[in-house]
């Protein structure tokens, strides 16, 4: 939506000496560069900087953690519980870090509380398009560890409070990523 501009706004100086264009990774293809006759002059030559693309498709297995992602695709939030010491993990692991024994899969409650939070206004390149987004660590009753997720349905950090109740929601079309589950205020 266009900003409303009145005469007063137009007359006010709006100079920003710190204004700067973002660097972009596009450029011109160069096939030749100038070269001096005197080889001693090479020590003062500017560095040559080239673009170097790097793209890989991995065959990535979730291994023993795969059932967690199958659970998300079926609207279930799964954690694990140690068969020996009963320590319960919100983010699953097949072996208990406390006693070393194998854990079993358990269904977690779909309602929890905000243990801590942030709102990211910048991010890694992959997530810049999502900014601002909210990250929370969720705590669940009867579960010993936390779960990292995104919170939606709030505007800014002032809308998020530690201890507030939040509820899990699931994407209908699973991406087989931990973001197949996200949380909203419990209402």
């Amino acid at each position: 939506m266009a900003k409303k501009i009145d005469a007063k706004t137009i007359n006010a100086p709006r100079h920003n000496p710190a204004a700067k264009l973002d660097e972009i990774m596009t450029g011109t293809t160069v096939f030749n560069i100038p070269f001096p006759k005197d080889l001693n002059a090479l020590k003062t030559m500017s560095p040559i900087i080239i673009k170097h693309p790097y793209y890989v498709e991995y065959i990535h297995s979730y291994g023993q953690d795969s059932p967690f992602f199958a659970g998300l695709a079926n609207k279930k939030l799964l954690g694990t519980r140690c068969g020996k010491c009963s320590y319960t993990y919100a983010t699953p692991r097949l072996h208990c870090t406390k006693c070393g024994k194998e854990t079993k899969w358990v269904e977690l409650p779909q309602e929890g509380r905000v243990h801590t939070f942030t709102t990211c206004y910048f991010g890694s390149e992959e997530f810049l398009k999502d900014t601002p987004f909210h990250l929370v660590l969720v705590e669940f009753d009867g579960v010993d560890t936390l779960f990292l997720t995104r919170l939606i349905g709030v505007e800014g950090p002032e809308d998020i409070k530690i201890g507030m109740k939040i509820r899990a929601k699931f994407r209908r079309n699973s991406q087989l990523k931990p973001t197949d589950v996200y949380f909203v205020p419990a209402g």
Binding site: Y62, D65, T116, F117, T118, C120, S124, D130, F133
Partner: peptide
């Protein structure tokens, strides 16, 4: 598997810790 895809960003992680 569990952290990076949710919005992997170290400043975000430290912000949660300090909150």
């Amino acid at each position: 598997n569990f952290d990076y895809p949710v919005g992997g960003f170290y400043s975000g992680y430290y912000a949660m810790m300090v909150n």
